[in-house]
């Protein structure tokens, strides 16, 4: 059972309060009709599935109900950071430096 820091509540809480919500920073295209079938497939289905640091979304479903983003190492399952939806991708090199 993971411990997860909600950036809105600023509290670290157990996993059952949260729901995983897939890879982060996949923006819905502004005008999907302009996309080719390949581009639309990429948006719908293609995922990084990173082994190592992974940008992903969680929702504090049984708390403030907000969606937020996280960087988590999928090998150790350790969170490197969590941050609010809409914020830019944190710099991975800096995060990894911070872990050391």
């Amino acid at each position: 059972m993971l411990l997860i820091h909600c950036p809105y509540c600023d509290e670290t809480l157990p996993e059952p309060e949260f729901a995983y919500a897939g890879e982060a920073h996949i923006d819905r295209p502004a005008d999907p009709q302009q996309l080719s079938d390949e581009e639309w497939r990429d948006f719908l289905f293609i995922r990084t599935n990173a082994k190592g640091p992974h940008y992903e979304r969680w929702r504090h479903i049984n708390g403030c109900a907000r969606f937020f983003n996280a960087v988590r190492d999928t090998v150790s399952d350790k969170f490197l950071t969590t941050y609010k939806a809409g914020e830019a991708r944190p710099d991975l090199a800096k995060l990894l430096e911070g872990q050391k």
Partner: peptide, 13 residues
């Protein structure tokens, strides 16, 4: 488990 992982472990719950 609900989240992506390569850890070959899982949660107790």
């Amino acid at each position: 488990d609900s989240y992506l992982s390569y850890s070959q472990t899982g949660s107790m719950h």
